[in-house]
Amino acid sequence: MAKKESTLWNLLSTLVMITFFSSALLGGTYLLTKDPIAEAAAEKKNFAIKKVLPGFDNHPGQESYTIQSIDQTGELIGYPGLSEGKLVGTAVETYTMKGFGGLIRLMVGLDPEGKILSISVLEQKETPGLGTHITDKEFQDLFIGKNPGEMPLKVRKDGGDIDAITAATISSRAFCDAVQRAYDSWKNHTKKND
């Protein structure tokens, strides 16, 4: 078969045909993957909530509410964990822009008094091998049981009591900032709603 000639009609019809098939194929794939993608996103979130909250029997992912950040730079999300109708803790999705690679997003579990239960890193772009140690259990354990309302979270260099990660003071400082933001904003939010 000879090659098609480059007449205007041929050019147009070929391109229309190709784009038509492409869009049909893409639309099909999109419909097929829509639910699994939504599920994967929900699973990521639930995974983090489960990690930072103790035994709850409700669905925090579906009962979330937004919290204004204390410095009005954005919004946080609160996921209340209930056990037999009683609040056992709140998972707060928080952020900071002060990371070495910019944005860091965390999930912080706070008990009803505001004591830190556990922390999980949702997103970070810190330097591999240095700042990425914020995802280590050893570092996160420094925060557990602390109440940021009594003693503001700061690294030792800034007069606090958190041991910064070696060679990653900026990441450690940013981590403190995000956790402190979670506490302050959540406290502010609950006070307003009382």
Partner: peptide
């Protein structure tokens, strides 16, 4: 490829 004109 055989059905696609060279120009596009």
């Amino acid at each position: 490829a055989r059905h696609i004109p060279d120009k596009v």
